[in-house]
């Protein structure tokens, strides 16, 4: 049955973000012959709309006031798009913006949102959303008693689609007032590869024992190549102050799905694995053969990382 799906898009350097393209892929799979709308807000939004493969219709505003996300402003625009279309389902990224938008939009529309979903299906008129709960120790499936159904979607859960962009572009109003005011912004020094884009992620945890463990892991990253590998971390390592919070992988950090994830001194708590279980191959370097990470890893190397990682670097350089 055709369904109308509205995707709340986000722009990244003037283009639809990777997760936006994944949401559009998900929406295409669900909508059948229904409409797939996409909301794009901020400078360059209407120029970016044609790159939204899979969307049949875009709702845009080029007002640069939207660039720095403020929930009050974005919500009014999304509500305006909902008033123009007739969405059965709204998909939003589980991003900083999406974490705020999902619950607030649900409340404004008198409906509900399921957060951080990895699957959304239309089962003959019943929306079913599946998501990890209890930090990933359980999988919960929900139905909705109200319409539209809203889901925020975990990054890397769906594949993007190729194809045409939206045939129609409808203008949304400019940003208007916000009750929150941005005092200052500190963009991170944009150096090198983003965690989400890396093909290899080398993550360190509490088992590193000290901050300088990350210096050793950085040597491993450099050996594999800075063009494809980056450092990540567990929350324990972040909370101990050994590395930047932006490196945290997991439920309350970032979600990665690289070809190779090397977990060093990480026990494999479900909340950590929520951020990396989509990796194609996981290697665990851990001195405990019974650590939970071994339930997720393809290969386990049992021993002290301080001895194994230097040998690994040598073996990689040698070959």
């Amino acid at each position: 049955m055709p369904r109308n799906v509205l995707v709340v898009g986000e722009l990244n350097d003037g283009a639809p973000s990777a997760t936006t393209r994944e949401l559009l892929g998900a929406a295409c799979g669900i909508a059948a012959s229904g409409e797939v709308g996409v909301v794009l807000l901020g400078a360059g939004a209407s120029a970016a709309a044609p790159a939204c493969a899979g969307a049949t219709r875009a709702y845009t505003s080029d007002d640069a006031e939207y660039d720095a996300f403020r929930g009050d402003q974005w919500l009014r625009a999304i509500v305006a798009a909902l008033d123009l279309g007739d969405a059965d389902l709204v998909l939003i990224a589980q991003s900083t913006a999406g974490r705020e938008l999902g619950p607030r939009l649900a409340q404004r529309r008198g409906t509900a949102v399921a957060m951080d979903c990895t699957q959304v299906v239309d089962d003959g008129g019943t929306w079913r959303a599946t998501r990890p709960a209890y930090g990933g120790n359980a999988i919960a499936t929900y139905t909705f008693a109200t319409r539209p159904a809203i889901a925020t979607v975990r990054p890397k859960s769906f594949a993007a689609v190729e194809g045409d962009g939206p045939a129609t572009i409808t203008a949304l109003p400019g940003a208007g007032e916000s009750r929150t005011r941005i005092v200052s912004r500190e963009p991170a020094a944009a150096e090198g590869l983003r965690l989400e884009d890396a093909r290899v992620v080398v993550s360190g945890g509490r088992g590193l024992g000290a901050a300088d463990g990350f210096a050793l892991l950085q040597q491993l990253v450099d050996t594999i190549g800075r063009d494809r590998a980056v450092l990540g971390a567990s929350r324990a390592a972040v909370d101990l102050g050994w590395c930047a919070q932006s490196m945290q992988v997991g439920l309350t950090g970032r979600v990665v799905a690289p070809d190779l994830y090397i977990a060093v001194g990480i026990s494999g708590a479900s909340q950590h694995m929520s951020g990396c279980s989509g990796a194609r191959t996981i290697i665990a370097i851990n001195r405990d053969a019974d650590a939970s990470i071994m339930d997720f890893a393809r290969y386990g190397v049992i021993g002290d990382y301080k001895q194994i990682v230097p040998e690994l670097i040598a073996a990689l350089r040698g070959g």
Binding site: A138, A145, T146
Partner: peptide
């Protein structure tokens, strides 16, 4: 409630 828990299960692991 507007969001109804239908099923809670253990995840499958590798």
């Amino acid at each position: 409630r507007r969001l109804v828990l239908e099923r809670l299960a253990l995840p499958t692991k590798g």
